[in-house]
Amino acid sequence: MSDAVIKAEALSLTFQTNDGPVHALKDINLEIGKGEFVSFIGPSGCGKTTFLRCVAALETPTAGSLTVNGLSPDDARRARAYGYVFQAAGLYPWRTIGGNIRLPLEIMGYSRAEQAARVKQVLDLVDLAGFEKKFPWQLSGGMQQRASIARALAFDADILLMDEPFGALDEIVRDHLNEQLLALWAKTEKTIGFVTHSIPEAVYLSTRIVVMSPRPGRIADIITSTLPRERPLDIRDTPEFLAIAHRVREGLRAGHAYDD
């Protein structure tokens, strides 16, 4: 794969703490191609979020190499290569929904006309047209998270990094947003890195699933999805889906075997 967007080779990250070193990531080898939807799944402490943060240059690896679009993560950050969606919406309460989505555009120096056009476009994309002038605290949790996705889509980054974006939402809202996210991915053809701890969510969304295990954080299994790109919600009841879910669960259990 020569068109790898994200490429990690023997990547390791060790935190020095008062209780000695903690190996958050150890020997990660992974290539993510353009337009892939890759999920990272594993128990807490397996390094899935840390890996995403390394890609976003929010953490610095201690060994190995990592490139994003062929650049170092920090250069990619400066080139504004990706949008990042956190677990909580993290919208600024003093800005309207429109103002929040405009925030990265203001920082990156888009013209006013361009800002307005893009805000309108992404609001349509996440089904929030008409809420531009509302404040975040006037919206439900699911709507806030959609607004934060819109904020990450507003500028021209072809990578979307999502760290348990739907973790704090209830099952019903989560199903709905999963469906919308797939539609969005199909429309925008972005490369998505997605951290989750829900097996059905990972299987439903991804083209590839990276199963990770803790202490030290490393890759236990990489599963390529056999599901078609077109995925209605009830695909989750098909034997094919269940088979992949089973394999993910096996991978998670194997990672845990010698742990406790």
Partner: peptide, 17 residues
Amino acid sequence: DHMQRDLMQTYAASYPQ
């Protein structure tokens, strides 16, 4: 909070921004 500062980092926002 930390998350909001991280967000600013991902935008490669300068200190004054």
